[in-house]
Design a protein around this nucleic acid. Sequence first.
DNA 1: GACCCAATCTTGACAGCGACAAGATTCCCT
DNA 2: AGGGAATCTTGTCGCTGTCAAGATTGGGTC
Lengths: 190, 190
Amino acid sequence: MSGTRGYHHGDLRRALIAAAVEVIEEAGPTALSLRDLARRAGVSHAAPAHHFGDRAGLFTVLAVQGFDLLAETLDAAGTDLLDLGVGYVTFAVRHRAYFEVMFHPDLYRADDPEVRAARARSGRALRSRVTALTDGGPDGQQADVMAAWSIVHGFATLWLAGAFPAGLGDDPGEAARAVIRRLFTPPPSA
Amino acid sequence: MSGTRGYHHGDLRRALIAAAVEVIEEAGPTALSLRDLARRAGVSHAAPAHHFGDRAGLFTVLAVQGFDLLAETLDAAGTDLLDLGVGYVTFAVRHRAYFEVMFHPDLYRADDPEVRAARARSGRALRSRVTALTDGGPDGQQADVMAAWSIVHGFATLWLAGAFPAGLGDDPGEAARAVIRRLFTPPPSA
DNA sequence: GACCCAATCTTGACAGCGACAAGATTCCCT
DNA sequence: AGGGAATCTTGTCGCTGTCAAGATTGGGTC
């Protein structure tokens, strides 16, 4: 499994995934082509089909890995609600390729058992952390989670789409901090 | 310009845009094919190229129309900050096709002058309404706008992606109201 | 160590797509 | 009535995903 020589690649699956992440990072999921990935890995044009079945199969694998990575990130985030949110935004920007795939269910098989499980893991991570850090009533807990999720997800999405005005610097985590602070707290009246 | 008979379609541009919105609504922007649109409109496969140049040209037109539609929606929204947010979410769900295109700049020519102008219009609408409804200091105004935008945009995106748990009903506006309430206000302690 | 099966990868082919070029048809204005 | 411009068609090219069939190799068993 040392190199790419020989009939068998040896580590093709991993190589294809790595190349896919790179391509998506640079040009978005739409630009991803199985034939291009095969070319980059130095294998024939139909080799990827064996590992992923089809294009949706590859995206399905990426979605699973992405949700697992997000769950780990959230579990490892700081104990503060702000740090948790910054962790979410940082994940989206650092692992942009995974993030974009994860929240475009039309790209992959969203009802795949592994996807459901991975998504449930990251959902549990987010939910447990938020509910532990807010004191909304029993009725308000779900709305608290949704609010926290919405504000960080919206920030990440808008940041990645380049929708925010220029001049915010290049540290999304820092910019996100000032925004997330508005959640659950009245604005600092001047 | 009565029907589709004759060499000239008469209203092809509008028909193609309408068909595009329909397709995107059902299957996402990725599924859109110029040849399919031509088929639906009953014209030859190369007819769309004359009106939009290429695929990105069509998405560019949709982005312009979408940002203008959003600007109108925000201008017409209620005077409350909650109503403004509900208006944003309602726009995203009702005009899902436009919304998805608008915030995927890799689909269209984001630096197109008309796009810039339309985006500026909707940006101004959002900014002016939010700053009028919050009392954050001069330094905090930008963060206030970004926070409001983030929470409604995140809610809309997650709702459209089917990321929220089931059982929230089918009225995104109502569900959004409980979430947006968390902005700038402490949670209702039980 | 020889053998066989399954996993892996290749070759070949097909239909659909975006894009471009060149020609046909029609509208509109003078 | 005539002519230019706008609109639409036909034909073609390379690219893509997907399927089928064959070639090669690794790993386990006797």
